[in-house]
Design a protein around this nucleic acid. Structure first.
Lengths: 199, 199
DNA sequence: CTGTTTTTGGAGTATCAACTCCAGAATCGG
DNA sequence: CCGATTCTGGAGTTGATACTCCAAAAACAG
């Protein structure tokens, strides 16, 4: 018996609360007490499920990676033409405006926060970004094999550049509190892909 | 008498030490005591120059903005053709590799760290990014008026997209510990500009 | 049911971090 | 030089924070 149903629910509640708090205050500013209050658990509960704050941080990364990748799969799984690309853009812009541009990208924020402070977290985040990048690259490759993109287009490079545009755009949007930078960054990348379209 | 020469030197030492520490540990993880040790000052000295940690953070933003913008001006002031653009790229890649891809962009890191935690800091960082963006846009406009770029190119949008590519590229490079993402992101934007060149 | 394991409540501790205070040393303007 | 101001050293205070402990309640397997 590893975790009873109730135990699993409590653990989930802790991770979800921690994720929300760490996303909009930063990891270091989020105290165990904050999390206890938000998840409505006692200290002993929290330490029953996690040996310490560090382990909780890793669980949060896993949770946020899942959330982000689920949304991205939704937008990228069937990507095979420019229309679908536009829908993916709209999906991200919609999420951003829904939150008034606060918080930025969950993975990007965690990455910036933890890359230097926690090497294990850094690697785990690198893996999540790698999966995200693969989703983009796979979509571009599908477009390419469908004849939407030139066979000479370097889909691997374009995927990295697109992911960078998204991350940079989200960061600037977070700082400026307007979706404008994300829109312009992604649209510019889409413009570039259009120059690589088979005419 | 506002600050004696010695006083100015001490203040500078504090800001420089705080900047270094906050860049590679994050603001919240950097304690006043860390800064005292790194700058070799006593608590009373630190609080003589700054009312509290918050004020010190603002001074750090100002300092890092100056550092970054100085470097960017060096690379962008005389930007007027594709060669100069390549040199700018090399300049940034050189700085990144010199630090083994650790730390990321000082402004980007601070922005991600402070955007939600400190509204005043957020605005100050937004201003710094605005200046950076203007440097890029001015360069692109110069290229345009020299006939290197098509008159129909939207230099304002391209400048935002380029800045986003740099920020996103630096973030990914920081997470992956290789300059590859920055290189690919910026090179892709330069490729795009070439498609807008007057042929 | 029943013995075993998991889950929970809540009080308690040790450490750390931000900040204060004040007296003495160095520096400055004239 | 000298009076006024700025600068410095270091001990001390207050509150927060991560984490511990243990006994009781709940859930589970057979």
């Amino acid at each position: 018996m590893a975790l009873t149903r109730k135990g699993q629910a409590t653990r989930d509640r802790i991770v979800a609360a921690a994720s929300r708090l760490m996303l909009d205050q930063g990891v270091a500013r989020t105290t165990i007490e904050d999390i206890q209050a938000a998840a409505a658990v006692s200290p002993s509960q929290l330490y029953h499920y996690f040996p310490g704050k560090n382990a909780l941080v890793l669980a949060v990364i896993e949770y946020q990676s899942g959330q982000v990748l689920d949304v991205q799969r939704e937008g990228l799984d069937r990507l095979d033409d420019f229309d679908a690309l536009g829908n993916w853009r709209d999906l991200m812009v919609g999420i951003l405006t829904a939150t008034q541009c606060a918080g930025g990208c969950p993975l990007g924020s965690l990455a910036s926060d933890l890359s230097e402070a926690d090497p294990v977290a850094r690697v785990q985040l690198a893996n999540a970004f790698q999966m995200w990048e693969s989703l983009i690259e796979d979509g571009l490759t599908r477009m390419q094999s469908r004849g939407e993109l030139s066979p000479s287009a370097d889909t691997a490079q374009l995927a990295v550049a697109m992911l960078a545009a998204v991350q940079g755009g989200l960061l600037l949007s977070q700082v400026r509190r307007t979706p404008d930078p994300l829109i312009k960054a992604v649209d510019t990348m889409i413009d570039h892909l259009r120059t690589l379209a088979v005419s």
